[in-house]
Structure formats: C-alpha cells, structure tokens
Design a protein around this nucleic acid. Sequence first.
DNA 1: ATATAAATTTAGCCTTGACTAAAATAAAGT
DNA 2: ACTTTATTTTAGTCAAGGCTAAATTTATAT
Lengths: 222, 222
Amino acid sequence: MISQSIEDYLKVIYKLQHGSDAPNQVTTSILAERMGVTAASATNMIKKLAEVNLLEYAPYRGVVLREAGERIALETIRHHRLIELYLSEALGYSWDAVDAEAERLEHAISEEFEERIDRMLGHPTIGAHGEPIPDKNGQIEEQTYARLSDIDRGQRAVVKRVSDRDPAMLRYMNDVGLQLGIMVKVCEKAPFKGPITLLVEAHQPRTLGLEVAHHIFVDLVR
Amino acid sequence: MISQSIEDYLKVIYKLQHGSDAPNQVTTSILAERMGVTAASATNMIKKLAEVNLLEYAPYRGVVLREAGERIALETIRHHRLIELYLSEALGYSWDAVDAEAERLEHAISEEFEERIDRMLGHPTIGAHGEPIPDKNGQIEEQTYARLSDIDRGQRAVVKRVSDRDPAMLRYMNDVGLQLGIMVKVCEKAPFKGPITLLVEAHQPRTLGLEVAHHIFVDLVR
DNA sequence: ATATAAATTTAGCCTTGACTAAAATAAAGT
DNA sequence: ACTTTATTTTAGTCAAGGCTAAATTTATAT
C-alpha cells in the first residue's frame, strides 16, 4: 500500500531530480535533509521503495525514480498544487499559508475531490506560486525562468514563479508587493554580490538581498 | 500526542454515549465493532486513553469520556460536520459521498481551515444530514426527534435528520426524494412491522421498509 | 598511495496500533 | 448453585517508520 510517507518521499525525490536548485544526483543525505529524517531512515525507505520498483537504487550512489514512482510523485504534486491554488482562490488563504495546509490535505483527498476543485478552478496549469500543475495523465510542462538575482541593472521582467520553501520569505515578498504576473525593474545592483534595488509596479523602490532575489523567477521583458 | 486514531476512538465513543440508537453503556465490543477492529485492539487503546485521563475505564464494564476526551471528540465532530456541509454546499457533493471524504479530511485540516469554511458557511449549527454542529467551545445542541417508523398513519412531518451510517441507504433516501426540511405524509402503514407508504412533497407515493424509516428523523406537523 | 574525513549503510531498538490465541471474568440457563 | 456461554483482558507478534551507534564505503588531501 502507498502510505502517506511513501508519497512524500517520492514527491521530494521528484522535486530534487527536476528542481532548479539541484539538477544533479539525489543522494541519501540530501533526501534525508529535505524529508527531515536521519540518513539511516532515508536509506531504509529507499531500500523499501527499490524493493517494489518505485525507484532505482545504487547503494552509495543515490536514487532515480522509475516510471511507477514518478507517476505517484506527479499525482501527489498535482494534489498539492491544486489544493494550494484552491485554498488561495476559493478560501482566501495567503501566499505563505497554503503550502503547510496542502502538505497534509494532499494525502487525504479523493479523486472526486481532486476533480471537483480542478473543474471549479477551470483546469488550471499554473499553481499559486507559479509552479506547473501536472495534468491527470502526469504530463507536466517544465519551465525555465531566469532568477531575479541574475537580471542586469535597468532591465524589466515579469514575475513568473517564486520558491515556496520558506513561508517567512513568501511573507516578505508579499510585503514588497510581489505577485505573479507583476512587472518589476532592477534599478540598482550593488557590487560584490550586494543587494539589488527593485521597482515593483505601483510601489516604492525596495532593496532586496540576493538570497531573496535568487528565489524569484522571472521572464525578461523585451 | 493526539493521533488520528485517538481522535477516531474518542469521536466514536462520544457518538455511542449520545447516539439515539444506543443510549447505554459503551462496551469494548460495541466500540470495537464501530471502529472496525478486534476487541483486543480496542482494549489496548482504551487502556492507553484511560492512562492519559481522556476517559474513565472500569475493566469489563466499559468506558465514559472525561472532560478532556469529550473536548477532543467534539472538536473532531465539529471538523467532520463542517467539512461535510462544505463539501455539499461549496463543492456539490451528494448526500452519500460527504461522510467518507470528511472522515479523512477531519484529521488533516488546520484551525485556519476550520475557521474559514465556518465563516464561509455562515457559522452553521446544522450539518448536511441534520446533525447539530458543536460550536468552537464544544457547545452542542442535542436534538430529540421522532423516527419516521414511529409516526402514525395519516400524520405529516418534516424531515429533520437522517442517519449517515450507510451511504447506500442515503442514496436510496435521495432517490425517494427525501431531503432536509421536506414535508412528508404517512399514507399507509402495513401491519406486523410492515412497510410504510410515504408521500413526499412533489413526488409519487413510495413504500419504504421499516429499516429505512427507522433512520429518518422528523418533527410532527400540527 | 595512503591517511583522514565525509557520506552511507547496517544492526539493533523504540513506538504505534493492529492481530491471534489463551486466560480470566461476567452473564445466563437449568 | 453451578455449569455453560459470551465478553473482555492478557500475552505475545507483526509491520511501519522513525532513531542511535557502529561499521563500511567513497572522497579528499597530503
């Protein structure tokens, strides 16, 4: 049986395989860190998942999802992102609160629930933080955006996606006036990996640290 | 920590203590049967719950909830019934599908979720099947309705509540045209515990077995 | 090339919440 | 009152999924 725990492991492995920050090997320790468990626990689970062919496991070398594992991962991610969007659109949740709630709900909803909120939201393909939402068949449109931290001074860009890893950071981005689809302009870039000063549509200019700018994904304008 | 399992046990014990069908002792075997576990498993859990003062336990004699246990039970029931109503009102779920979905969701939602759907529903006090919804402080208005099976021939009554125990039965009731607040009239009552023939507002007369009529609760009219 | 450090796995243990089989207690019938 | 039956509890297992400590393997630095 596919437990909640298994769903979470597969989901995290998928994100590590396809994520923008770590396009490399999914090792035991990285997985353990993201799951909030010890490396020993992760090894145990990995062995179990390999046993039932949800992933390929080369001891000391890391894991790669197999077909069946990826399917479950994508279903879980679909649930998560649909729920996040629903919480945000239908229940008025704020940007930074949807992730924690969806984290638990994603394992509890039925197919019927999934279908109903999907229909209600108009079969969305982009989630609350700009992530692609896999469709019912597990098709997902991987995106490649620039990071705001890499944009040159004077350039303008549209915010397409933000990292949802840290709720405090999301709250801060919200304070600054950022939202999906909004236009921003880089006014200033301090040297030596210094902060960038940003002009957000209809807001005062604000100065952001690179750490934050690194987690904001944009499309250049013109 | 209060596990999902503990919440379920406490909820079921509460319902057994206050339910209309069994206004008596909550014994190990009855509890086990409702929980879908063996009597031995129920004994184990009972001992654990007694240990942490969630209930009073007299071996071989049954259990009674203590204050703290009742509080948790009522919180869980509140979650369950608010979710059921939300599924029905906001997502278009049918009468018979809400219980199963709520059964899992009730353990997964946060206080924020509870508050948001409560507000969205206008702080309801009656659930999707007519059950009272405990308020945030655990206050609940116990109801006493007549059973449709006990109503005399010729009498009219308003459907106030239906049992949600059997989805198939709910589906059947729905087919017959029953819903909360609808007026019905007992046309015929066959002798020797025979079926009753019912006229439901704007429907053809239908003949119902006593088993079903026993699970329909009404207020007499006039 | 080898010694040290870092990452990974193994071994063994714990808790939760089920289960079965056997023992103990309570209830019922003659 | 005593025997039979039904209910309940006890004792001992099991699977999941964590953990720590020790052993092993891989990577790194002289």
